[in-house]
Design a protein around this nucleic acid. Structure first.
Length: 235
DNA sequence: GCGGGGAATCTCACGCTGCA
DNA sequence: TGCAGCGTGAGATTCCCCGC
C-alpha cells in the first residue's frame, strides 16, 4: 500500500456481504428466487441459487463483467456465507495469502477451482434467460417476497421514477425508441414547439427506464418493487 | 477488457442386451 | 420378470480463441 502497489481496491465490506448472503440463504430467499427463476433446464448441474447469488454479488461490487467473478469471490463475502460445501477461503496467518478451495458441482474442470462455478456458466446462464421473462419475474417475485416478509409499510407510499437512457443511434439496440428531446434532455412533442424552440431540440435514440420504489414518509428505506426497461409504452 | 461462440469434456437419462 | 451393465446421445459446463 505504501509503495502504491495496489492491484485492486475493494469498497464493499466482506463482513457486511457475508451477513447479507447469510440472511438471504438462511431465510430461504435464495431458494425461493431460484425456484421461480424464469429459466428451465432439462439438466442442472450448477444450482440456480448460486447463479442468482453470484449475480447479486457482482452487482454489489459494481462489477459489470463476468470476468471479474474470480476477483469478487476472492475479495467478497459470498463464499463465507454459503458454507464449506460450496467453497472455503483460508488466509495464511503469516503471509496473509488467500487460498480458495471450491469443490464445484461437477468434475469437468481441468484446473483447480478458484470460484464456486466457472464465470462462463454465469455468462451463458444470463444469456439463456429471456429478458422479458426476467423483468416479469422481478416484477412478480419482488413484491411477493416483500409482502411475505411483511416489509410493506402501512403508509403505502410508492414512487414511480422514470428516466431516459441514451444510446448511440444504432437499430441494433433492440426495443429502443428515437424521440425528440430539448436542450435539457426532456422529451418534447414537435407539434407543440415554436420554430425557435424546435431548432434547440434533437432526436436521440433511447430506452425508457421506470422504477417503482416503495418507501415511507421519513425515507428510512427504499425498496425497488418493480421496473420497466424498454420502449415508451409501459403497461 | 469484454462478450460471443465454438470445441472439448463431462454427466446423466434412456434404451438395449444378457443373465439369473 | 427384474436387474445390472453397457453404449449412445443430448444437454450442461468448461476451456479457449476471436473480434470489437
Amino acid at each position: 500500500m505504501e509503495n502504491g502497489e495496489i492491484d485492486y481496491l475493494e469498497v464493499v465490506s466482506e463482513g457486511a456481504e457475508t451477513e447479507f448472503f447469510e440472511y438471504l440463504n438462511t431465510r430461504g430467499v435464495l431458494k425461493h428466487l431460484a425456484d421461480t427463476y424464469p429459466l428451465e433446464r432439462k439438466k442442472q448441474e450448477v444450482p440456480l441459487w448460486l447463479y442468482i447469488a453470484s449475480d447479486i454479488s457482482l452487482r454489489l461490487h459494481g462489477m459489470q463483467s463476468f470476468h471479474g467473478y474470480p476477483l469478487v469471490i476472492r475479495s467478497g463475502g459470498l463464499l463465507n456465507a454459503l458454507g464449506p460445501e460450496v467453497g472455503k477461503k483460508t488466509v495464511h496467518p503469516k503471509t496473509g495469502q488467500v487460498t480458495i478451495q471450491c469443490p464445484g458441482f461437477n468434475h469437468k474442470n481441468k484446473y483447480d477451482r478458484q470460484t464456486t462455478c466457472d464465470q462462463d456458466f454465469l455468462r451463458k446462464t444470463a444469456r439463456a434467460t429471456e429478458a422479458d421473462k426476467l423483468v416479469g419475474w422481478f416484477n412478480t417475485e419482488m413484491p411477493r417476497l416483500l409482502e411475505q416478509r411483511g416489509l410493506f409499510d402501512p403508509e403505502g407510499i410508492f414512487i414511480g421514477d422514470a428516466s431516459y437512457i441514451f444510446v448511440p443511434d444504432n437499430e441494433n439496440y433492440k426495443g429502443s425508441d428515437v424521440l425528440l428531446f430539448d436542450e435539457h434532455n426532456h422529451p418534447v412533442e414537435k407539434e407543440k414547439l415554436s420554430p425557435s424552440q424546435l431548432r434547440r431540440c434533437r432526436y436521440r435514440r433511447c430506452y425508457k427506464w421506470v422504477e417503482l420504489i416503495h418507501t415511507n414518509s421519513s425515507g428510512e428505506f427504499f425498496f425497488f418493487v418493480a421496473m420497466h426497461f424498454g420502449a415508451r409504452e409501459v403497461s
